[in-house]
């Protein structure tokens, strides 16, 4: 188990180094950083001095090593546009994005899993057909359209929920802002969370349904029935547990995607998260922010994948014993 975890960890470090290289190359290929920093009236001598000060004359591998070393200490330099440390900017936006992402992931899982189990167990009922038809809409409608539709119905027409922003937030521990503790914060969260989680919800539902249909046909389910076990024990114990490995995989990857691609939802709802920050950075060619965002998202993906791998081991003994023996 420990060997398994360590092996995965080493692989994760490898992945992070590759991503670091890519974001490092951003600096070198998207224009000259000195040009981005100085005005038009800077003399060539001043430019050379700046170049020397920034370490741009050092060999590439030295620069890369410095970049990785700083990144490991959460030092991503200073934003060209906003002139503040990138790490601070991201820290101020991260809670908003993570909160939104986690709430929509929980929503997707809590709604998608039971719907998937139901449609898998009773594929012929009217309700199952309704769920499937709905899920088709969820999968095929683009996120921004769903967001706008929700705003149109619940904010503009019904006036129940706010159409943009985070509402009132409370600061915890000096840096973490949360909207989960205030009424307006919670009501602001509902629409964006549904918008962001709808696709994942339908995906999870369809995945669980497919897996359930598959597993219910297996010999061990038939044998469990032949032993007279209760439907509850069979459906939710024997069958559901066997569907979990692929469901965990997809859910894990989807949480990564939710965080990374909350950009659209954040734009639609003017949600003050990292996605919005990134979008502004792209418009202004603010490379330090883009590089840091890239690294951060890669880091989140890697962490989630690591957790997913450990969860496999918890769910499936075949992986556990195989891993320990190797």
């Amino acid at each position: 188990m420990l060997a398994f975890a360590i092996r995965r960890l080493i692989q994760a470090v490898g992945v992070m180094l590759v991503v670091a290289l890519i974001s490092f190359l951003l600096f070198r290929f998207v224009g000259d950083p000195v040009n981005q920093l100085v005005g038009v009236d800077t003399t060539p001598e001043q430019r050379a001095q700046l170049r020397q000060d920034l370490g741009l004359n050092d060999p590439v591998y030295v620069q890369f090593g410095r970049f990785v070393g700083k990144a490991a200490r959460f030092d991503f330099g200073i934003s060209y546009q906003i002139k503040r440390p990138v790490a601070d900017l991201i820290a101020s936006r991260l809670p908003a994005t993570l909160e939104l992402s986690l709430v929509s992931a929980v929503f997707a899982l809590l709604v998608g899993l039971p719907m998937g189990v139901y449609t898998g167990l009773y594929p012929q009922t009217l309700l199952s057909r309704l769920f499937l038809a709905l899920s088709l809409t969820g999968i095929s409608l683009p996120t921004f359209l769903i967001g706008i539709l929700l705003i149109f119905i619940f904010s503009v027409n019904l006036g129940w929920l706010p159409s943009f922003g985070r509402g009132d937030v409370v600061t915890i521990g000096g840096f973490w802002t949360t909207g989960l503790l205030t009424r307006s914060g919670l009501s602001s969260l509902i629409l964006p969370a549904i918008t962001l989680g709808l696709f994942q919800m339908t995906l999870i539902m369809r995945l669980v349904r497919g897996e359930m249909l598959e597993v219910l046909r297996t010999d061990y389910i038939k044998f469990a029935r032949a032993r007279g076990l209760s439907s509850r024990a069979i459906n939710f114990g024997h069958a559901l547990k066997n569907t979990l490995v692929p469901v965990i995989t997809i859910t894990g990857l989807q949480i990564g995607s939710i965080i990374a691609f909350s950009i659209i939802t954040e734009t639609v709802f003017q949600w003050p998260g990292m996605g919005l920050l990134f979008l502004q950075a792209v418009q202004n060619v603010d490379i330090p922010i883009m590089a840091a965002y890239l690294l951060l998202i890669a880091f989140l993906f890697t962490v989630i994948n690591f957790i997913v791998d450990l969860l496999y081991v918890a769910v499936d003994p075949r992986i556990r014993i195989g891993g320990a023996g190797a």
């Binding site: 061990y220 038939k222 003994p317």
Partner: peptide, 24 residues
Amino acid sequence: MRRVRGKRIGMIFQDPLTSLNPLY
């Protein structure tokens, strides 16, 4: 019928490799 299965009639299937739930 569920109380008959297992209790009064036991059943053995062909393939022991797939008859047992791998996760329990």
